[in-house]
Amino acid sequence: MDNLLGLLRIRVKRGIDLAVRDMNTSDPYAVVKMGRQKLKTHVKKKDVNPVWNEDLTLSVSDPKLPIKLTIYDHDTFSKDDKMGEAEFHINDFLEAMGNDLSEFPDGFVITRVPPSRQNCLSEESCIIWTEGKVSQDMILRLKNVERGEVELSLNWIDLPGSRGL
């Protein structure tokens, strides 16, 4: 891990109108992957609008790797069903952190990332300077599924001794 740049804390906030995979509901959980790292949230029983508010922390050594988010429906007696997936890159986020932001007021919008065919954003996402840190909230539209969105928040954690950006 010599190339460690720092840690990316992803707060998986909530799922919105997720697909139904059991009778009339689902037991969703989220899996976040970057390279060989794989983290997951707890299962929310019988809830197509789950609120996780869980922090998952990835070690970032290659900022070009996409971050993949997959939502699954937990099943007790069979393989968990996929409930859609989304992918995003952190280039804009890391680029925003390269600026000297100490002069800017709290809540300053550094960059706006519009939804496009290249990303899974369902609406514009703002990268914001707040409380001395760069953060980004985003709502991702899930692919390969009939419906559903997931709300995330990104925060960077600098590590003592890491290469930094």
Rank of each mutant, 00 (worst) to 15 (best):
T70N: 09
Y72W: 03
A96N: 06
D106P: 12
V150L: 11
G98P: 00
E103G: 14
P115V: 13
I157L: 15
V51W: 10
D73E: 02
R117S: 15
K79V: 15
W52Y: 10
Y72V: 01
P66E: 10
S125H: 07
D75R: 14
L94N: 10
E131L: 09
N119D: 12
D75T: 00
L140T: 02
D81T: 03
R147C: 15
G161S: 03
L65V: 00
I127F: 11
V109A: 10
D92V: 08
S122E: 15
D100G: 08
V60C: 07
E103N: 12
E151M: 13
S61G: 00
W156Y: 11
S102H: 13
E131F: 08
V150T: 04
L142I: 11
D55C: 05
G132E: 02
C120Y: 14
D75W: 00
P63E: 06
D137N: 12
I90N: 03
E103Y: 13
G84S: 04
A96K: 01
R112T: 12
V145K: 11
E124I: 13
W156V: 10
M97Y: 06
S116Y: 05
G107N: 05
L69Y: 01
F108Q: 10
K79L: 00
L121E: 08
M97G: 06
L65Q: 13
S102Y: 01
S61H: 08
L152T: 12
E149D: 14
C126P: 07
V145Y: 04
Q136D: 02
E123H: 15
M83T: 00
S102Q: 13
L101G: 04
S102C: 02
D62A: 01
G148Q: 15
E131H: 15
H89Q: 09
E124A: 14
R147I: 13
V113H: 13
V145R: 14
C120T: 07
I128C: 12
V60H: 06
N144G: 12
M138L: 15
D100A: 14
L121V: 10
N53Y: 00
Q118L: 14
M138N: 05
L58A: 05
E95H: 09
F77Y: 04
K82D: 04
S162Y: 05
T130M: 09
D62Y: 11
P66I: 03
S122I: 12
L142P: 01
I90E: 02
G164Q: 14
N53Q: 08
F77W: 02
E54I: 00
E103S: 13
